[in-house]
Simulated scan of single mutants.
Amino acid sequence: MPRHGDPLLVDPPGQPRHLPHQPTRATVLDRLRSCAIAHFACHGDRFPEDPSRSKLVLHDHATEPLTVADLMRVRLDHVRLAYLSACRTAYQGRQLLDDSVHLASAFQLAGLPHVIAALWEISDSVSSSVAGDLYECLAKGRTDGVPDTDRAAYALHYVIRKLRQKHFDMPST
């Protein structure tokens, strides 16, 4: 849940492709300058042969992709948490086992202290549920409603354990 006033970029289905709030490379890089939490609910695309080309599949990904290389060139010290709800955003593949070049590490190199990302494919329904529970956990006990991003690791651990208890017979959920 973004804080009140945090920028929100959406890609509404069936809408014209020139809306000012669509998630494009330029709008995302611009909005990252003013947010504390960056939550991406989109697809990720990885390039095992050249991990620096791995990208978030935004509105203009075919012509102007937001890649690992782009993120490694920016400083985002004010952003406290990136939540990458996109498949394989923390997966480096088997070709480069001793490297950790992927979207999650690119956000860390850009200065973010907390990054949540996926090692494998994730379902939309489970992903949505985990995100809701995580943000609820981050805001728990806060009178101002602002998520405490310094509790991200604890909150994710708590939420995943809760999910595992619910789906103990499905470890890949």
Rank of each mutant, 00 (worst) to 15 (best):
G5D: 08
D6P: 05
P7W: 10
L9H: 11
D11M: 05
D11W: 07
D11I: 02
P12G: 05
P12C: 06
P16A: 04
P16T: 02
H18A: 00
L19Y: 01
P23R: 13
T24G: 11
R25T: 04
R25Y: 05
A26E: 15
A26H: 11
V28T: 15
L29S: 07
L29G: 08
I37S: 09
A38E: 06
A41D: 12
H43R: 14
G44A: 05
F47E: 03
P48N: 03
P48A: 04
R53I: 01
L56Y: 05
H59E: 15
D60K: 03
H61M: 02
H61S: 14
E64T: 10
L66I: 04
D70R: 08
R73D: 11
V74D: 08
L76N: 02
L76F: 07
H78F: 05
R80I: 01
L81I: 00
L81C: 01
Y83G: 00
Q92C: 12
Q95I: 12
L96D: 11
L97A: 15
D99N: 12
V101H: 10
H102V: 08
H102N: 15
L103H: 06
L103A: 10
S105I: 09
Q108T: 13
L109A: 15
H114A: 02
A117P: 11
E121Q: 14
S127M: 08
S128C: 10
S129G: 06
A131C: 08
A131D: 02
E136F: 02
L138T: 07
G141K: 08
D144N: 15
V146N: 07
P147E: 00
R151F: 00
A153S: 09
Y158N: 06
I160N: 00
R161P: 03
K162T: 02
K166S: 08
P171F: 11
S172K: 12
